[in-house]
Write a protein that binds this DNA or RNA. Structure first.
Lengths: 238, 238
DNA sequence: ATTCTTTTATGATTTAAATCATATTTATTC
DNA sequence: GAATAAATATGATTTAAATCATAAAAGAAT
């Protein structure tokens, strides 16, 4: 596992609002985990978890953002999902022996690692933690199953619209119109499940219609509802 | 929710080995849930859960098999996964308000239903149940994320091979070579994420090469390793 | 600034897969 | 059993998307 300068952030003073440990463990447990966890900082494009490597524990993203990628046969890469502060990486492998996916930081990120034995004990002693994590996986599974359908049925234009909606809800936490997508074309294409040439074409089309603005700093979405109409013209079920 | 003749199977005498409730709840809880659950029998092609309908609780498959399907825009259907005895349906919707998917029996099936409040209480009182369910969702999520990549990157031949491998591990529990796939071409195509014409073509090709045998009773797989080579020529990570 | 490199965009061509059309097989009904 | 309907298979054609090729733009290095 590639790690850069290890940090020893303190759980008690940690301000990551979405942290499952902090939210759902007893205080004395947080103190305990604080000593057992390892906190590391990853620079952009550094690997947090590596596909095919043994699963040693669970990663909690304290701050920053990462992409979860899965490599295909012919050198292709699929961005399976995007993760950020409060999200968890690596648990899919739990029970299995090796990570089926890799996780790569897309900006400088601080990540806490808790080894298998410790997290297992934490689950046993903190039912609320287990419950919330179960709900988390349940939600992720919903999203994942929706994406299976999208990959199977959508055309490239719909896939791009869907990927941009995902980017919006991921990057645009303040819900302002001037946020920028911090991914390059290759990553957006891998997220949409298409190639970069097709992505460029579709983006140019959206740009011409002024649905998005492309500057050298990135892409910003002007009209999100336009994309929502593309992916579910009759309104969503959810 | 469409239900046929309600049955009142008894948890104490139930022989479903994979049942999460039976395996991971305290005995007194099993007695309690036995009274609160509703057990129904669904005939082939009957709906167990219906996409877009409110989530009222959780379905546990006691016996039988079901397909979990998601409907697309243009009348297309995606078979998201296959479920059988011991599996759970409906929990993706928990937290959300409506089922994002439907579940349809593919053979006569007995299904136990536990309402939201009851199952929530069961989670609170049986940490082991919650933990095992978390692990279950974690495994399902792994499979689901693998399928996202497959849908995005595989060609039709690979998709068919992948679907047949799934069918084998789903239907062929005794690991004999003479098992039959109990799905029609439309369902296999929806599982593979392709259309029936393409499926027929690929199946004919496999039949010609004697990888599979097609009779009027169904499809049987003669050489599973052939398919495994197609989907991961260099051996799997798992 | 100028060159070199990388990223992004776009046009031309090829290819795989969907669609359309029809035939064949299997199942159902009378 | 024959007749009808449904499911499956296969050929012909169209279409969407991938690939190939090249250009334009942006960033880095000198």
């Amino acid at each position: 596992m590639l790690k850069s300068n290890a940090r020893d952030a303190n759980c008690e003073s940690c301000q990551t609002s979405g942290c499952f440990i902090k939210q759902h463990c007893a205080d004395k447990y947080i103190t305990l985990l604080n000593n057992l966890k390892e906190t590391s900082t990853y620079r952009k494009d550094q690997y947090i978890a590596f596909e095919g490597y043994p699963v040693l524990g669970l990663f909690f993203i304290q701050s920053g953002k990462a992409k979860v990628v899965s490599s295909g046969l012919n050198g292709k890469t699929q961005v399976v999902r995007l993760t950020k502060s409060g999200d968890i990486i690596g648990h899919r492998g739990y029970g299995g022996e090796k990570y089926p996916i890799s996780a790569v930081a897309i900006e400088e990120s601080i990540v806490c690692f808790v080894d298998n034995d410790t997290i297992h004990q934490a689950f046993m002693d903190n039912p609320r933690l287990t419950f919330e994590l179960m709900m988390y996986y349940s939600r992720e599974l919903r999203k994942s199953e929706a994406k299976i359908k999208n990959q199977a049925q959508m055309n490239v234009r719909e896939k791009v619209a869907d990927a941009l909606i995902s980017c919006n809800s991921f990057f645009n936490n303040k819900n302002d119109s001037s946020f920028l997508i911090q991914l390059n074309r290759q990553d957006i294409a891998d997220l949409a499940g298409i190639n970069t040439e097709q992505l460029s074409r579709i983006l140019s089309e959206f740009k011409k219609d002024e649905i998005i603005t492309i500057s050298k700093d990135g892409i910003s979405i002007n009209d999100l509802s336009f994309f929502q109409k593309i992916v579910s013209p009759f309104g969503s079920v959810e």
